[in-house]
Write a protein that binds this DNA or RNA. Sequence first.
DNA 1: TGCAAACCATAAC
DNA 2: GTTATGGTTTGCA
Length: 197
Amino acid sequence: MQVYIKKIGNIWFGFACENQKVAATNFGSDETKVIEGIETSLGFNASLTMDSKLPEFAEQTFTALNDIYIGKGTTSSIHLDLHRLPAYTQRVLKAVARIPVGYVTSYGAVAEAVGGGARAVGNAMANNPLAPIVPCHRVVNAALGLGGYSGGLNVKYNFLKREAKGFAEPKNVPLDGGMLKVFPVEFMLSKLEKKQL
DNA sequence: TGCAAACCATAAC
DNA sequence: GTTATGGTTTGCA
């Protein structure tokens, strides 16, 4: 297992991989916290490579991570290594990965699509080792409020603001198991602004 | 609004 | 096995 980190703009990105498959990611303004977060997700330490001489594959992955971070979404597909995670968690993460940029859904809706309960989905999000590739920030509570976020609620909020694409209608995303209802992120943003008044 | 009770997969004992 | 723990939800005052 190999860990790479790199600073883009003013935030650090990092990820752990093996055979060009990504097992854990992290991001934030504090370099050491990013590294620690990855090690916590993995459950063990891996050798670290700083941003001086990165292989092509790593550069591409960082570009994709930054694209997601700035709200652009990603077109290049990153290969994920989920086999270490419990089966149910994998199902949840795969479903969440299908939520398009500019939309959000609720813990309950995800639970309906993959089986299980809303709280279990929340747990899977809380332990998501692959943020923001698996866009757990696009999962909110049933009232279209923010819900929670390991990286801090303001981080989640800013993510969603950057991802607003001006969509007007809810829609359904086809999933292996069923359908996932998603709502334009504007639905919840306007609701939050109202609350602040 | 606010509170209490049901819900469900995991991790930790 | 059992218990404790959440990024929840729903129903009912």
